[in-house]
Design a protein around this nucleic acid. Structure first.
Lengths: 189, 189
DNA sequence: AAAAAACATTGACATTTGTCAAGGAAAATT
DNA sequence: AATTTTCCTTGACAAATGTCAATGTTTTTT
């Protein structure tokens, strides 16, 4: 049931059988249909969420009703609204499924317990956060430096597997472009 | 000599006198003149750097020689190229002083030792990283969603103290705008 | 105090990107 | 298989932002 998740963890650091059992005991499986919300704006996000299968998006909606995609999370990635999680305030993000998905949820209390009990998980979690931050800074760099065309090619490089799974207008949203602009950028080359 | 740094740490968590002494024993003070490099592209970044006084910028230079500012770090903030630090590869960022500055440097080896020796520092470092990541995501959101004018007002809100210390063309660079555009945005209101 | 360098503003114009509307293709649903 | 919905593309035009050049100001250096 949590095989993908456990294998992911095992590929990152060493786990004893007891630790595996402990982790599994706090995991909850959530299945999402396409378009189903994992988190809706206004609710507090209280989990660590790992995508075992499928693809979800994290996005915000502005005053004009436009969606702006902050992140895609496919298999073996994490999803969530870290701000809501840390501050325990209502989320400004929505998360929903682009494809039918399978998510492993662990509550904050359980996750903190795991961090304390399993030192290797703690170390891994920090490394993951560090790398995630580096990726975020690279994206900022692209956002402030690149033209529409360069942004698109950067996306192809950094997310090669997503191109065929994510509708183009969502890639445009992620890049801060209008769908028409992305369409033109793509045909130009 | 490291008073500002030690007071910063003490304001974040409790430190014993021995821990203070230990920390001080691995700190190095670096004074920067205006425009002096703290890190130059191509060198490997090997430190944790805390700004005690002054103001530095982290930026990248593109093919056309244009500078794109990733981050400003003033008193009581950190600076560095985390990617270079983690991967021990040549930095793509430059860091230099906007004002005469005073930086506390701790090497990676010493910093890791501190993390292991002082559990409260470890916890604090993770919390700091988490909050920094949230801030980075908020900036991404602004970059992909806002108009030039909105970006500027967001900057006023999130960095109120920097407006009078950072030349406008650098704020423009941070926001991904041209200096002329920022100038026009400012006078329009 | 004078000279030099860096900085900000403005105008005229170019380019990029966005907007709106329409049509057709692809995918999901019935 | 038919229908509906979502998605992508295209054209004509609008708006936002960038480019270039000139000028005056401020700040830094000498």
């Amino acid at each position: 049931m949590f095989d993908v998740f456990i294998n992911y963890l095992k590929s990152k650091f060493i786990l004893t059988d007891e630790q595996v059992t402990l982790i599994q005991s706090v995991c909850h499986l959530k299945k999402l249909r396409k378009r189903q919300y994992l988190l809706q704006e206004g609710d507090v996000w209280r989990f660590n969420a790992f995508v075992q299968k499928g693809l979800v998006r994290t996005y915000r909606v502005d005053d004009k009703g436009l969606e702006h995609i902050i992140q895609f999370s496919s298999e073996n990635w994490w999803a969530g609204d870290r701000y809501s999680y840390l501050s325990e305030t209502p989320a400004r993000c929505n998360i929903d499924a682009i494809e039918e998905s399978e998510i492993v949820l662990i509550t904050k209390a359980d996750y903190d317990m795991l961090l304390e009990t399993i030192p290797a998980l703690n170390t891994f979690a920090r490394m993951l956060l560090e790398r995630t931050f580096v990726a975020a800074q690279n994206r900022i760099h692209a956002d402030i430096s690149f033209t529409a065309e360069e942004k698109y090619h950067e996306f192809l490089k950094t997310h090669p597997t997503l191109i065929n799974r994510v509708p183009q207008h969502m890639i445009a949203s992620y890049l801060g472009l209008k769908p028409e602009t992305l369409s033109r950028v793509r045909t130009k080359k």
